[in-house]
Design a protein around this nucleic acid. Sequence first.
DNA 1: TTCTTCACTGTGCACGTTCACAGAATCAGC
DNA 2: GCTGATTCTGTGAACGTGCACAGTGAAGAA
Lengths: 341, 341
Amino acid sequence: MNNPARRQRPTIHDVARVAGVSRGTVSRVLNGGHHVSPAAAEAVNAAIRRTGYVVNRHARSLITGRSGSAAFLLTEPQERFFEDPNFNVLLRGCTQALAAHDIPLLLMIAGSRDEQRRIVRYVTAGHVDGVLLVSSRTGDPVAAQLARAGTPVVACGKPMDPRAGRLAHVAADDREGAREMVRHLLSAGRRRIATIAGPQDTPGGVDRLAGYREVLAEAGLPFQETLVETGDYGRAGGRACAERLLARHPDVDALFVASDLMARGALEALGDAGRSVPDDVAVGGFDDSSAALASAPALTTVRQPWDRISQEMVRVLLDRIAGEDTSAVILPTELVVRETG
Amino acid sequence: MNNPARRQRPTIHDVARVAGVSRGTVSRVLNGGHHVSPAAAEAVNAAIRRTGYVVNRHARSLITGRSGSAAFLLTEPQERFFEDPNFNVLLRGCTQALAAHDIPLLLMIAGSRDEQRRIVRYVTAGHVDGVLLVSSRTGDPVAAQLARAGTPVVACGKPMDPRAGRLAHVAADDREGAREMVRHLLSAGRRRIATIAGPQDTPGGVDRLAGYREVLAEAGLPFQETLVETGDYGRAGGRACAERLLARHPDVDALFVASDLMARGALEALGDAGRSVPDDVAVGGFDDSSAALASAPALTTVRQPWDRISQEMVRVLLDRIAGEDTSAVILPTELVVRETG
DNA sequence: TTCTTCACTGTGCACGTTCACAGAATCAGC
DNA sequence: GCTGATTCTGTGAACGTGCACAGTGAAGAA
């Protein structure tokens, strides 16, 4: 207007004029093409190509009440996620799965309380049609607030909170993954199997420990509290846990570790203690993160299907946005046998 | 409020009614508060709190022609970025810097040609006010198309293309970083310094090699082509390069490697060849990625200020959106001396 | 007083789209 | 050729906001 240099973008009006039809017909072609004659549709498409028309999403959103976008929301301990290469796979997978539906992804990070409030306001104001939530800790207030406001939410990973039963989520089968790994160690003849569990306020930590206990019980082996150490998913923690386990049980012949990072720390501790892996002690990790291959020996681990998880999260979210009440999705893990066990 | 079936969000109209003023006054309070009496402003703010009003950005964008959002666009070799922990720092930094201005970030990944076309259309249609571009390769058609359409763009890293001179960018000073590292190796008494360069179609690869050559020349040391190998920034490539260098020059006493990942590969090769680090051979990396600390010995390297880079990228982008023609920003690197040299 | 200036406030319009509705065109069946 | 059914098309009315403009009243200058 006041700026003559700025080119006016073509509107649906221009397309209608060029095609020799009305706005309504162009709109119908844009959204599904029902109740439009082939001739009109062809004329409209040609006009769209000729004018280079692109729909104005703001105008559309204003009338439909939908934004046509979704948020990828990260809450709480961001550092852990940002250091985890698997997180990148998840983020990329979600971005591309949404892009296939022409839905842009908004990345939001809720660190401080202020940021959380700001994001909740933004989302509940309807600026986003749904939320892909990543938050491993229990009792996330953001999830509850969004759910209360009626915003479609799909979480990554099983929520701890039993009250959050209605929260849709997509997760790998941690328990079965742990079971498979421990069965694998047993079938290799290991009998004194210790575990380094994850934090017990995370569902992954709980379920992987549960799987470990179950398989030992099924194999008729006694469960010993002293064979369990609990770490923080980090490398240093894994190392310390392994040192304590070795001090208590020098005769341990296998270690099931709830994360690859902790497993790497455990490998260092085993090396320092003069144990050979896997001859003296077998080690099984969890995650199949890049840490599993970071150095020799390559880690035997449990792979979580992050690419499929992201695809399913998007699918479930779109279902929920469309009003369908898709329930939780649990995906199988995969045992990856490498050199440590 | 308690009627979920017919829940209308409060509009600027409702706020005006509650506050006892007109829409115009509410709008003025919302955007800066100029020409509003303190009493009216207070009444409006109270009404906003009481009604829980949040501005409808779609309606605002429709009239202002601005979306109030920015895109973080990743083109070409996504894998390399997604495996690089520094990329996460950059992405997080940009997200948070934009959030401080209440601007949501849209994450876009342009892998295929089709995706590129789709994204260019989306952006040039005005659905985004500006683009933070990450693309290490030269001659990116996306950058050119966006620039031609007049979209504000800020790239991360120096563009190779001399024609792209007008492309705003924020980068670390690769050349000076390399110079500092090589000077450091010289000052430690090293004289037979080889280098594993990065791909010569990336500006980082070119500048780091240039810095290496310059400092050697300044020190009066002859430049030898045979002391240079070119890798792909990856671990395996670094290992192969180091092996070739050792075969040609068994007497090499220092290695300047253009990435930490390649440096780790080089350390493996040195270990296999029976060289002790840093006693026989000093090794300097580049990036200060998590690979630098991943295992012993900890890598001496050059840190790029990714947090500051992200902040500057956002600052420059906002400047450009506001119409100011901020030029390129080059930020200093930092030498991090650890165990390898 | 009267005129000017200034800060403040209200009103109509425009932004580009979708949607409901009504009207036009086509077609089958007699 | 008429009827009713069906498919297609055009039109006006929103959606919620910012902006230009006009209008109000008060303070200061002549």
